[in-house]
């Protein structure tokens, strides 16, 4: 039978092994099998970006990835970003810069900006906006999110504003 399969992967640094239906998306696997409900589904066709997670350090749409495709891979989600109760500089910047309202798109935004700052530690506003072009937010007008990304870049470089 090829409609169920056992997969082993790393999620937020922890080894995980589960038998899953082969058609289950990675998003549903994270949310419903692992209870990591921070990853949200907004469109299920790869446009809104709410479900964006990091796969081997790179962003990916978890609604367009099958759970079986994550077999052997390393996945990072919003739940793994803080160190215990200590928020990461990026998470803190979202609070300080009012980078979220309803919070539904936020986990995807955090994933995208995480990859951005790993790739380009000192982005311009234009670069931030280009990176965010794959993540829709209906609440903030993007302004607080852009400001948060720029503020987090400064903090991470030790240039606390």
């Amino acid at each position: 039978m090829t409609d169920r399969m056992t997969i082993s992967l790393t999620v937020n640094g922890d080894a995980v092994s589960r038998e899953v239906s082969v058609r289950m998306t990675l998003a549903d696997f994270l949310r419903h099998e692992l209870g990591l409900t921070g990853t949200h589904l907004g469109c299920e066709h790869g446009v809104c970006g709410a479900c964006t997670i990091l796969m081997n350090g790179r962003t990916a749409r978890s609604c367009l990835t099958l759970a079986v495709q994550a077999d052997g891979q390393s996945i990072d989600t919003v739940e793994g970003m803080a160190d215990g109760d200590d928020l990461s500089p990026l998470q803190q910047a979202f609070i300080d810069q009012h980078g979220l309202q309803c919070g539904f798109c936020t986990p995807g935004m955090l994933a995208t900006i995480t990859e951005l700052l790993n790739t380009n530690p000192d982005p311009t506003e234009h670069e931030v906006r280009e990176w965010l072009s794959g993540n829709a937010c209906r609440c903030t007008g993007y302004q607080g999110i852009v400001d948060a990304a720029l503020a987090a870049a400064k903090t991470l470089q030790g240039k606390v504003p």
Binding site: E79, M81, A82, Q91, L100, F104, T106
Partner: peptide
């Protein structure tokens, strides 16, 4: 903010 930023929000689809 703190809960939402850590994936600890509780939206309807998060309730099982």
């Amino acid at each position: 903010d703190p809960a939402l930023l850590q994936g600890k929000g509780q939206f309807v689809d998060d309730i099982h």
